[in-house]
C-alpha cells in the first residue's frame, strides 16, 4: 500500500482492515454496538467485506439485498442473490431480500424502458430504486443506521464528478456519515478510506465469494471513467486519491463549502409511501413507478429472509 508506505502479510492485513474500519466508525461517530445496522449488500467485494468486518467487530449487522432483475446475458442479479444468500446462511446472519419485480411489478430494466428515464441505461432508475428500498426497510424494520460499502475510489470518483461540474449542493452532502432526519435513515460508509484495490484484496484473502463480473450496464459509466482518471493520477502520485478525498473532508469541515441558509429544503411525506420528499405530492420514486399506471403501494413484509 504505497499511499500508506505499508506492506503487510496476509495474517496482519486481515487484522489491519477491520481495525482501521473500527477507527473510521469511531472517528466519524457512525454507530455503536448498541445500535442495529442494516448493511446494503450487492454481492460485490465491498459490501460483503463490510458485512464480514462488522460481524467480526461484534456489531449487530443484518443484510439487505435489493433484487434488481438485471439478468441480461450474465444472470448478474441471479448470481448476486445466490452469493448474498450463501454468505448469510454460512454465517447464520439475517438477510432481507426485496425483489423489485415482485414488490413493484417490474424489473429495473423494465421500469427504465417504460419510463424512458436515463436514456438507454437504467442506472438512474436503479439508484433511485435502491435508495427507496434501503430507506424503506431501514424505517419499517427499525434499524438505527444504514451502512453501504462505498470505498475511497467510489467517493473520490463522485467528488471528482461533482467538482468538475461545481455541484455545490452535492458537495455539501458528500461525507462518511449523513445524519438521519425524520423518515430518512442515517447513512454511513465505513469503508470510505480504503482503496478499492484494498477491499478486493481483503475479499480474496478472506475467501469471500463475490461477483467478479461487472453489472452489464456499468460499462462506459462516468463513475468508472472518473476512477480510471484518478488511478492514472495515483500511479504517478501515490496517495493522490486519498489526499483528494481527505482534504475535501477537511475543507468542508472548515466551512469552505458552507451552505446558504436557503439550501436546506423543506421536506414533506410522500402521499403514497410516506418517505420524505422535497416535491409536493409523490416522491421521485413513486412518480416513476406511477408513470403510465396505478401506483403500487409497497406494504410492510414484502421481503423474504434468507
Amino acid at each position: 500500500m504505497r499511499q500508506h508506505k505499508l506492506a503487510l502479510c496476509k495474517e496482519h492485513y486481515l487484522e489491519w482492515v477491520p481495525a482501521q474500519t473500527e477507527r473510521i466508525i469511531r472517528k466519524y461517530e457512525m454507530f455503536t454496538r448498541h445500535e442495529k445496522v442494516l448493511v446494503a449488500v450487492s454481492g460485490g467485494k465491498d459490501s460483503l467485506s463490510l458485512w464480514d468486518i462488522l460481524i467480526r467487530l461484534g456489531y449487530q449487522a443484518d443484510g439487505l439485498y435489493p433484487g434488481l432483475g438485471i439478468d441480461e446475458g450474465l444472470h448478474y442479479s441471479t448470481e448476486s442473490r445466490r452469493l448474498n444468500e450463501k454468505f448469510a446462511s454460512e454465517r447464520g446472519m439475517k438477510l432481507h431480500v426485496v425483489d423489485v419485480a415482485e414488490v413493484y411489478g417490474e424489473t429495473i430494466p423494465a421500469i427504465a424502458a417504460r419510463t424512458h428515464r436515463g436514456k438507454e441505461k437504467p442506472c438512474s432508475v436503479c439508484g433511485l430504486t435502491k435508495r427507496h428500498v434501503m430507506n424503506r426497510i431501514a424505517r419499517d424494520m427499525a434499524y438505527d443506521v444504514l451502512a453501504t460499502g462505498h470505498n475511497l475510489d467510489d467517493e473520490a470518483a463522485v467528488l471528482l464528478g461533482n467538482t468538475l461540474t461545481w455541484s455545490g449542493e452535492y458537495l455539501l452532502r458528500q461525507g462518511p456519515a449523513l445524519p438521519g432526519t425524520p423518515g430518512l435513515a442515517r447513512k454511513v460508509k465505513p469503508l470510505c478510506r480504503f482503496y478499492e484495490r484494498e477491499m478486493a484484496a481483503y475479499a480474496i484473502l478472506r475467501g469471500i465469494e463475490y461477483v467478479y463480473d461487472e453489472c452489464p450496464f456499468a460499462a462506459g459509466s462516468t463513475s468508472i471513467f472518473n476512477k480510471q482518471l484518478l488511478n492514472d493520477l495515483e500511479h504517478e502520485r501515490p496517495g493522490a486519491k486519498l489526499a483528494f478525498y481527505l482534504r475535501f473532508l477537511e475543507a468542508r469541515k472548515a466551512g469552505l463549502f458552507a451552505g446558504r441558509e436557503d439550501v436546506q429544503q423543506e421536506l414533506q411525506p410522500c402521499a403514497n409511501c410516506g418517505q420524505p420528499t422535497s416535491a409536493p405530492g409523490l416522491c421521485a420514486f413513486c412518480r416513476m413507478v406511477a408513470t403510465g399506471k396505478a401506483v403500487v403501494a409497497p406494504g410492510p413484509g414484502q421481503e423474504t429472509e434468507a
Binding site: D153, A200, E214, C215, A218, S223, Q228
Partner: peptide, 8 residues
C-alpha cells in the same frame, strides 16, 4: 488478474 474497479 482480478479487475478491482466497479461501479455504474
Amino acid at each position: 488478474l482480478v479487475a478491482v474497479i466497479s461501479g455504474g
